[in-house]
C-alpha cells in the first residue's frame, strides 16, 4: 500500500485559479463582478472592458508567468544544488537583469523606446548567466561561488549607477524599479517576457530525472547516466531565461523562488522532480496574492510588490533557519 497524500498539484491549481480570479475582480477601481464578466466577454469598449482587458488581465497573466518562472527556477536549483537555500538570484541572473534595467534608466533610454528597460534587463540577465557559467564550469561548488561573485559584481555596478545618477529623479526611479512591481504592465510586457519565460520553463521541465538522481549524490547520479555538466548548463540556461526575463519586466522580487518549493516539498514526499510543477503553480499563486495585496492595501504611496514578498518571505526564512537547526544535528 502506498500512503495517500493530498494531491498537491490539484490544491495548487485550485489556489491559483482563486488567486487569478481575485486578481481580475479586485483593484483600485471598484467595478462590480457582473460588469467585469461582461467586460471580459464583450468587445464593447466601455470602462469595465478597458480596465479588465488592458490593465488587470495582462497584469494577471504576467503575475502567473513571473511567479511560475520564479517558483520553478527555485525548485530546480534547490534540487540541482541539493541546498534548501538556493533561489533564482543565486546564480547572478537576477542582479544582471537589475543592472541592465538600471542602465537603461541611467541613460533615459526608456523615454525613447518604452521596452528599453525590459530588453536591457534581459540582456543583463543572459550576460550575467553566461559569465556565471564561464566562471563556474565543472562543479557544483564552483557554480555557487561563481554565482555569488557575479552577483557581487553586478551589485557593485548597480551601486555605481545609483552613485552617479544623472539627477535625483533618475536615482529615485532606479531604486523604485528595483523594488519590483506589476503595475503599469501591458500586453507588450507579456509578449516580450512570455516567450523567454516559456522557453526557460520548457528547458527546466526536462531536468526532473536528473535532479531526482542527484538525491543520491553526484557520483551515483553520473553512474546512472546523468550528464552532470549538461544538467548544470541547462539549469543555468533555463533559470537565466525564465527568472531573467521575469526580473527584467517586473524588477527584483525576492523569496517566491525560495519559498514555493519548501511549501510543497513535504507534501510530495520530498522527491525533487515532484516539487517542480506544484512549486511553479504555488509561485504563481503567491505572486498573484502579493500583487493583489499591493492593490487593495491603501497606502500613501504604492506599496511595491518586492516589499510585500520580502515582508512575507523573511519570517518564513527565519522559520526555515529554526527548522534546519532543529533537524540538522
Amino acid at each position: 500500500m502506498i500512503p495517500r497524500r493530498p494531491p498537491m498539484t490539484f490544491i495548487a491549481l485550485v489556489l491559483l485559479a482563486i488567486a487569478a480570479a481575485a486578481s481580475l475582480f479586485l483593484g483600485r477601481v471598484n467595478i462590480s463582478p457582473a460588469a467585469i464578466l461582461e467586460g471580459l466577454f464583450t468587445a464593447d469598449p466601455n470602462l469595465a472592458h478597458l480596465v479588465v482587458m488592458e490593465l488587470r488581465l495582462p497584469r494577471t497573466v504576467l503575475a502567473v508567468l513571473v511567479g511560475a518562472a520564479l517558483g520553478l527556477s527555485g525548485a530546480v536549483l534547490q534540487g540541482l544544488l541539493r541546498n534548501p537555500l538556493a533561489e533564482p538570484g543565486l546564480l547572478g541572473v537576477s542582479s544582471g537583469a537589475a543592472l541592465g534595467a538600471v542602465v537603461s534608466i541611467y541613460f533615459s533610454l526608456a523615454t525613447a523606446f518604452s521596452l528599453a528597460t525590459p530588453l536591457l534587463g534581459l540582456a543583463g540577465a543572459l550576460g550575467a548567466g553566461a559569465l556565471t557559467f564561464a566562471l563556474g564550469r565543472g562543479g557544483t561548488l564552483s557554480l555557487i561561488l561563481a554565482g555569488s561573485a557575479v552577483s557581487g559584481l553586478m551589485a557593485a555596478f548597480l551601486a555605481m549607477a545609483l552613485n552617479f545618477a544623472p539627477n535625483p529623479y533618475a536615482a529615485f526611479e532606479m531604486s523604485i524599479w528595483m523594488l519590483g512591481s506589476l503595475s503599469q504592465k501591458s500586453w507588450e510586457h507579456v509578449l516580450l517576457a512570455g516567450p523567454f519565460i516559456a522557453a526557460g520553463i520548457a528547458i527546466l521541465a526536462t531536468l526532473g530525472r536528473a535532479i531526482d538522481a542527484l538525491a543520491l549524490g553526484e557520483d551515483q547520479a553520473a553512474s546512472l547516466g546523468i550528464d552532470l555538466d549538461r544538467t548544470r548548463l541547462l539549469a543555468l540556461l533555463g533559470v537565466g531565461l525564465a527568472a531573467g526575463a521575469a526580473t527584467s519586466v517586473t524588477g527584483s522580487i525576492g523569496f517566491i523562488g525560495l519559498i514555493a518549493p519548501h511549501l510543497v516539498r513535504p507534501f510530495v514526499g520530498y522527491q525533487p522532480s515532484r516539487t517542480m510543477l506544484p512549486s511553479a503553480l504555488f509561485g504563481a499563486a503567491l505572486l498573484l496574492l502579493a500583487d493583489i495585496g499591493t492593490r487593495v492595501l491603501h497606502t500613501s504611496s504604492e506599496l511595491r510588490l518586492g516589499v510585500i514578498t520580502s515582508l512575507i518571505g523573511t519570517p518564513f526564512f527565519f522559520w526555515l533557519v529554526m527548522r534546519l537547526r532543529r533537524v540538522a544535528p
Binding site: 542527484l214 543520491l216 553512474s223 522527491q271
Partner: peptide, 27 residues
C-alpha cells in the same frame, strides 16, 4: 549494464526508501 556504488553513501533528501531504490531504474 553496470552499477556503481561510491564511498560514503548519503541520501540528500528525506525521500522514502522505495523512491530511493527506484532511482536505480533511471536509465
Amino acid at each position: 549494464r553496470r552499477a556503481y556504488l561510491p564511498q560514503s553513501l548519503r541520501a540528500e533528501w528525506p525521500i522514502s526508501v522505495e523512491r530511493l531504490v527506484a532511482l536505480g531504474l533511471t536509465p
